[in-house]
Design a protein around this nucleic acid. Structure first.
Lengths: 241, 241
DNA sequence: ATCTATCAATAAGA
DNA sequence: TCTTATTGATAGAT
């Protein structure tokens, strides 16, 4: 009875191979994804590296981490993003703004602004809250987010400016700083450190606050049958170390 | 003299904040990036999750990990990839296929095939070598890779088929197991485990083999003046845990 | 979800 | 690079 007070017998070594047990797999994914995201955050903070990370859960639910828009574009288009920028705002793209989704968008918009108003903006020059890790988004939500962000952009910029104005009376607003960057989501004028608050609300927490909606399981496993050639178990193989 | 045989005094706790010392920063980035990639691999193997990871070093050198094409497409275009695929092979895009780069491409193609022939394909159903983590690629190389992959696709599929045919005469191809996924790069007919070799050449190693060309420091830190607004210290903020 | 024993990652130093 | 002492991550049980 003095052998163990609570909990299990501690960690055991496991082989790095596909976990068959559904339950264990789910748990492992959760734990390890969390760990992975944390490591990614740490790396980016420690070394100022820009990191983008996307993980699709076995259930097909996407989790993203980092400022993906910027990095993905850099990666995909390289320096040649202008080429694709020409028809960047293709009207066809807009058709995803369905009525049903508008409601969701509205909800997100609210939470976004709330988090902005309540916690962030306490801002060092580098405290870009919108670069906060985005976690727990379904594919639907990701798509939604894309347009959301565009729309939200103006609102937030406006809002944050207001807040800054209120907070420190003499703010030398360098309004010239948000220029046109098709990839950047937005950017605040990089205020002074006057409003710096305590750090009880770190990125992860803000993230939780902002993005943790009821994540409905969006099953896109049965995708379009256009090019059936590939994928399946994309990463799985017999890799031990 | 029995206190310590070699090495330092062991790990010490560090605060998660920007490392100022250039040297330490470099070392930390290397170590932690490696660890991060490993974790990402483990996650994807353990849970069959598809993972893509991009990290730009403080020097501005991109490192990617995972089957990025697949994931990026999913993320950026969502289900609507057909829309952009219309002008996917825009002739303008081809202009990056410079003569100088063709040589590089040729080199890569060779290494790719070599690694395929020599080490991989030893294969379980899930041993997709092209999903091997890609590491140490400069931006140039990444761009190059994109087109490389497309071209290489046919070659490899052909080649692997040949190899499989040779290796096992009667292959009861369970072709039903990988169904349709429009995003995947390619797919082999999934042979039997007859050719399974030892595991002396794991993913990391293959990766090293495949992608470790002389990585010339491609400095795109001074990016086009168009989007100098953003980026900078994209992730840095006061995040401790 | 929480806990704990263990395993794995890594900060310093050689 | 390589080693070691430590911190940090996590598998299994609760």
């Amino acid at each position: 009875m003095n052998k163990q007070r609570k909990g299990g017998d501690g960690r055991k070594r496991i082989k790095i191979e596909k976990i068959k047990d559904k339950s264990r797999l789910q748990v492992t994914f959760s734990k390890r994804r969390k760990g992975l995201f944390k490591k990614a955050t740490e790396l980016s903070v420690l070394t100022c590296a820009q990191v983008a990370l996307i993980a699709f859960s076995p259930a097909g639910k996407p989790y993203v981490c980092g400022n993906t828009d910027l990095l993905l574009d850099r990666f995909v288009n390289g320096e040649a993003s202008e080429i694709h920028q020409k028809d960047h705002d293709d009207p066809e793209q807009r058709r995803y703004m369905e009525v049903e989704q508008e409601l969701e968008a509205e909800k997100k918009r609210g939470v976004f602004l709330d988090s902005l108003i309540n916690s962030d903006l306490r801002g060092g020059n580098d405290n870009f809250w919108w670069n906060t890790y985005v976690d727990g988004l379904s594919l639907d939500e990701l798509k939604q987010m894309k347009s959301d962000m565009e729309q939200l952009q103006k609102c937030v910029a406006q809002r944050s400016n207001d807040l800054k104005m209120t907070a420190n009376t003499a703010s030398s607003s360098s309004s010239s700083s948000y220029e046109d960057n098709p990839l950047a989501l937005m950017k605040l004028p990089a205020g002074n450190d006057d409003i710096v608050d305590d750090d009880h609300l770190n990125k992860e927490m803000v993230n939780e606050l902002v993005f943790d909606f009821d994540s409905q399981e969006y099953d896109f496993g049965t995708t379009t049958s256009t090019d059936q050639e590939i994928t399946a178990d994309m990463f799985s193989d017999d890799y031990y170390y």
